[in-house]
Structures are given as C-alpha cells and as structure tokens.
Design a binder for these strands. Structure first.
Lengths: 235, 235
DNA sequence: TAGTGGTCTAGACCACAAA
DNA sequence: TTGTGGTCTAGACCACTAT
C-alpha cells in the first residue's frame, strides 16, 4: 500500500482509538471519507485495506466498515516486519551483540545466499530483547557487497533502519520458513533457558527490490516470551 | 483479490510453469498483458499482485516483472487457508475423526467464541494427514447455530468446503496466534510422537463475512512433518 | 428502494531502470 | 530518452444489506 494510503489509515486509526466510532462500531462510509479527506475512492479503499489487514476493521458489503473488538496481548506480526524494532515502535527494543565479524561464505551459505563461495559476509549474532525480556537469538548474515561497513554500535540498534536510511538500500520482499528448532548451549544461556529446550525457529531470507538476496538469518524464539499473530482475509 | 484477477493469475502461472518466460525470467509488460487478455490494467495489476503474494514473481519498478527461482520443499502457507485441503490441492489430504459430538460451551469457550455459556457447539477432534504423513492434531469448535448438522463422513473431508458450498456460509477473515505447545498423551499417540514432545501450536479463530466468529480451533503440529512459509513484501 | 462496499474501466502523471 | 511499474483520479456498474 502507498504512503498516502498508510497515512490516511493512521488518521482513521487515531479516530478509532479515540473512541469516535465506539457507539456504532462503524466507520464513516467510503463517500463520507472521500469528502472528509478530499481524496479519491482509490485512496480511501486502500486505507481501509491497510486497516483490515492489520485486523482493526472488517468491511461488510452493502452494510459498512466495522471496527473489530480490541485484541488483547502483545504479539509479533509474522508477515510484515522491517525488523523487530519497527514491529514495536512504542517499546524498548534492545539488541545485545554477541558476535560481529566479517567471514567468508562456505558452500552451504553461498548456496543459500546465492553468492560465490568465499564471498565476504558479515556474521552478526544478537540477542533481541523487548522491554528487557529476551525474545530471540538471531544469527544473521549480510553480504558485504551491500553492507560495506558495520560496527557494534550500529548492530545494537536497528540494522534495517541503518541499511535503508544510511546505506540507501531498498527492500523488496522476504521469505520466511517457520519450523521447530532446539537451543544450543550458547543460545540457551543468552535466552535464560536450558540447552535442548525447544524453540520456534524462523529462517528469513530478505531480498532487495531488485530481487537480490542480501540478508539471511536464523532466529530462535523464546518459547515463553515470543508469540506471533497473523490476520488473513478468507476471500 | 477478485475472481477475475485470480483466474488471470492462474493463466499467467500456467505460462510460467510451462517455461515460457524461462529465458529472460521476465513476464510480458503490463501493457502487453492488457492486450493479450483484453482486460484493464486494474485486472493485470491485481493478477500480478496475486502472483507476487504467492511468491511466484516480483515486480521491479522501471524494469519489469520477474519470475522468482523455484522454491524447494513442501510448506504450508501461514496466512491464507481455506483449510488444509485447499492448501494441498494435489495431495492426498485425509482427516481421521477422533471425536465428534455436540457439547455446550463452558465459560472459557463462550468467552473465546463470543457466545452464550451453554450454547450448543460441535466439538471435533481430528488427525490431519497429508500423503499419509500425520501433520496436525486439531481440536475445533463450531457454533451449532451456524453448522446445524455434521457427521463423521463430512468431518473426514473438508469441513470448510462443506460449510461454504453446502451450508452457504461466507467466510470473512481469521486470526491466528502461533506459539509453542506440548503434546498430551492422546495427541502424541495419534501423531506418532511422545507425550511431552514440543509442537508448534496455532490457535485459529475464523469469522464469517458479517464479522461473527463461527469456528475456533487449537492445532498442534508435528514438529518434523509440518513446516510453514510466509512471503511478505517489505514496502 | 436506497445505501453501501466490490469490481472494473480509461486515462493521467510520477518514479525509476536501462539503454 | 524511453519504457517500465507505481500512484491516483473520475466515473460506471454490480452485489449485497437494510428498510
């Protein structure tokens, strides 16, 4: 969705959160929103689609757009994600850098990252915490070709923001594979769990907008602290 | 996305799978597709969006729409899902019905299903198998208000297809929460695992298009046989 | 029957990539 | 500079809900 549509969605969300539609739990009609904001129907529908995807509203044909009841709990979205920091804008997101070094891709990594064997890559291992709660133990690789410089200071913040705003990289899409994994000694120690404990494991391949893979990662999530949600339309 | 757009996407996908674009790994331009199929740009862009969401192609502004390299392995999509049968149209999907009975909602279930305490609900427990491999142990509840009749024969097939085609229910959206769980004795026995083994657990709330919840379920996935994938744009 | 969201078209202009 | 996908508008008609 476009910037304009997201901005409109944010405005409407503020009105929802202010309780403006609490009585009827129904948004203004599309035509009313068109007039209120002076935009086209295309924009209004885009904004509503953003809100619907986020699970905030659901449109009913012939009837209106209804506000969904509040969801409880804190969950990580599984689909989107410009990184964990973007997922929790209001929370204290801290990354403890456990390893940071340039290495060379072995055969297996080269295959996964579609790069040459021995191509230089950053290897970054971090413990990700939200509000001082350990959430995940992440092992990530970044092609040095696209990320020429990195240090502990940058890695302890939002790497995605750095790559986007400072390096000018443009992200395209990600592939995620979710399965079960088990904690090694180091991961367990950092997460405060026991070696051999099970973990939800997400392998993430991130591509630039030109289709080139630039980042692969292996994430082990704390089985108590991390939950995920996903909202989907069934049409 | 609309039916027309999905159909167009299917046609384009057939051409992709036939290797028609293998050389350049690039689709015809939007204008060419408009002409080839005699539809508007709206439709073409919708069809490409469908393919992009499915991870088949990625559009690059100013350049074209590119075919993605083939993915390997069999994974379950985490977002969509008209049920497991729809996810694997080419595979043998079998459900073994372990329990099927009408019960009454206790306080906890009533809260989750937004129904009255003591409201009649079907409780259905099934072992879901794909190609004879046990995938998940599912405990599901359906409001009898919306699903007046059910039997083992129906439950051993696709319940969603039954509800949609035979009962005329119209689905709206689902909420999924993914976290870690552990197998009880019965689930472990059915899945061929050990009691206390870890499992990826997906709790699923399904709503009709009018926003009414009609189905809640608790799914424990076989930690070896079930993997999930998710494709997401990062814009 | 009136009102609302869903689909679709035609056309304009913008942002970006490649030649 | 040209061609591509991205955004946006205006307007038409359809499908469904509510009255």
């Amino acid at each position: 969705m476009t910037v304009k549509q997201r901005e409109l969605a944010a405005k409407i969300l503020h009105r929802i959160e202010a309780g403006e539609f609490a009585e009827t739990s129904r948004l203004p009609t599309e035509d009313q929103l068109i007039e209120q904001y002076g935009v086209s129907r295309y924009c209004v529908r885009g904004a509503i689609a953003v809100l619907a995807e986020a699970g905030e509203v659901f449109p009913v044909r012939g009837s209106g757009v209804f506000v969904r009841e509040e969801r409880n709990g804190i969950y990580m979205p599984i689909s989107t994600s410009y990184g964990i920091a973007a997922d929790f804008p209001d929370r204290k997101v801290v990354s403890k850098v456990c390893e940071l070094a340039v290495t060379r891709a072995d055969e297996q990594l080269a295959k996964r990252m579609r790069c040459d064997v021995d191509a230089p890559v950053w290897r970054v291992v971090r413990l990700r915490c939200v509000d001082d709660l350990p959430i995940s133990y992440e092992t990530a690789w970044y092609l040095k070709e696209y990320v020429p410089f990195l240090n502990e200071d940058i890695a302890s913040g939002s790497l995605y923001r750095y790559m986007r705003d400072d390096l000018g990289l443009r992200f395209g899409f990600t592939d995620k594979v979710i399965h079960m994994g088990w904690l090694g000694a180091e991961a367990a120690r950092r997460l405060g769990l026991e070696e051999g404990d099970p973990a939800i494991c997400i392998e993430d391949d991130a591509f630039l907008s030109n289709g080139r893979l630039f980042n692969a990662s292996y994430n082990l999530y704390h089985y108590k602290n991390a939950k995920f949600y996903s909202m989907a339309s069934m049409r």
